[in-house]
Design a protein around this nucleic acid. Sequence first.
DNA 1: TAGCCGTGGCA
DNA 2: TTGCCAAGGCT
Length: 369
Amino acid sequence: MVFVVSSALSAAPTELAARLLAWYDAGHRALPWRPESGGLGDPYGVWLSEVMLQQTTVAAVIPYFTKFLERWPTLADLAAAADADVMTAWAGLGYYSRARNVLACARAVVAEHEGRFPEDVASLRTLPGIGPYTAAAVSAIAFGRREAAVDGNVERVVARLLDDPTPLPVFKKTARLVTVLLVPEDRPGDFAQAAMELGAMVCRPRNPDCAACPWGDSCRARVAGTVAVRPNRPPKANKPHRHGVAFWVERETPQGHEVWLIRRPDKGLLGGMFAFPCSDWVPGDGMPTLMMPDAARNWLVTPLNQPVHHVFTHFALDLKVVRVQVPDLADPTTAFGSGVWVRVGALEGLPTVMDKVRRAVMTGLPPRP
DNA sequence: TAGCCGTGGCA
DNA sequence: TTGCCAAGGCT
């Protein structure tokens, strides 16, 4: 099998690795979690950045990474954090199961590994939120182990290098076999980052800069003129639409203007996050119809004109927003579920779709002192 | 195994 | 405006 795979390469693995590392050394982005060339990364920072970077762009991650390290400088600090503080700090970054897993992982390392990350892939894989890619990346970048970190960048680079037409995700297996061949004994962590840097900066999904590629004419897709169709990615199904109602439940108290927030269940969409109470989000297009809970029928109800639109990974949502003004001492629990009153001026840590609801309401509200 | 799980930038 | 898709993992 090794012979078959290596014969698919048009240059020796050692030469390809050397050319890639030389290209990386000649210039690469300085990223907050990235060690100097030839050095090892701090395991805590490498792990946290890798989890944040799952399906997320570098530009989106940098401010969150910086904020987390300022607030929780060590793994032990993070492990001791309150759940709600971490969820709030993660708000806006998306894929919120990662935030729960980051906390669970930090606590597991403290409880089961004396506060230090294990160095081998098998042990890392047992930790929450660490899969095949992240385990290999941490092991190579933070501990210098010779492991192959195969992410979307590497899949794309290898698919083009081989000009392999196998559709994703089946091709991932081949990408791994080839990458294992390429990882050098020396500097495996730099190799992992160099391969991803190549995918991000040169071998881009669209408009690749083949003239700047260190692998040049060793790339079979470049020679064949098939770079644009590698990797072979099957078309995605169209996104269905859903609609529903979000309730902005507010009251005036001597302490100020407050709104009712619920916490969503840990599992599922926006799991564990603060949110406004909502109706079910049902399939279909168009303006949702307003269904008020019976227990709220005596309160002042003001629907907003424009629905909030938001696109999730697998569906698009139109949310009708309804203001419900309740008396000072009223309890919204029966109508909208258990929750907490939060001062409107102190609303933060909401997932983006809920922050869109907040902004929609605030736009129609007179400014307050 | 394939569906679920966010968000923002870009062409 | 619309679709694509980014340093994946979980179930």
